[in-house]
Amino acid sequence: MFPAVLLAAALDFGIVRDAAPQLARGFALTLEIAVTGTIGALAVGVAGAAARISPSAAARAAATAFTEFFRNTPPLVQIYFLAFALPKLPGVGHYLILPAVVAATLGLVLHQGAINIEILRAGLLAVPEGQREAAAALGLGRIDQLRYVLVPQAARISLPALGNNVISLFKNTTLVASIGVLDLFGEANDIIAQILVSAELFITVGVIYVICVALLGTAFRLLERRLALA
């Protein structure tokens, strides 16, 4: 209790009240990036996982290289690469000058997408082989087998890990602020740069993120329960 009182004495949360409109704008952008990023990462995950179990060795090799490279390198560095290195590509660099928001979201999509590929690949491998055989025996082609039989089951198996990855992505949206995007964290930093006082805003923003993460976690647990097959 004593440290809390000490803290409260040194801090002025009126700052937060004044900053609220700006923070709200930033939060809206955070949500936008999070949703776009999650959808994009899921698409990358499904496509990549399908490629990694493809009969084509070339597809498998390409997908594996992509997965291992983008999930073992920091998303922050990937964002910097997309924002600052791409435009310097000889010849085509001119067309690759991405708006900061795009570069940042793309970085998240690639990194969390690569993680999704690994998660879904494990999920697909966990689906009993008999399911693929039954689907094939009915005459379904590879894509339809994946679409109607294999991926729906793999997704259920992978749901907890996928949920964790969505939470990771949500927390990683803060990285976009590093290249000047005004998400919740970016706006907070913007205000701090002007008023030169930071603790209140960081605490507030931190708590907002923690609450969102808790809500996401609960949502996923509910989803797992709803989709359970047994």
């Binding site: 000490l6 803290l7 040194a10 801090l11 927390k171 990683n172 949206t173 803060t174 990285l175 602020a177 590093s178 964290f185 930093n189 701090i192 006082v197 930071s198 603790a199 960081f202 605490i203 923003v205 931190g206 993120y209 923690v210 609450i211 993460v213 808790a214």
Partner: peptide, 24 residues
């Protein structure tokens, strides 16, 4: 533990570096 897992690392880092001095 749930708080530390829920807060983005960047926010935590910035708070420790920029925010703590405010509290001495």
């Amino acid at each position: 533990i749930e708080f530390l897992r829920g807060i983005p690392l960047l926010v935590l880092m910035y708070f420790l570096f920029f925010g703590l001095p405010q509290l001495g």
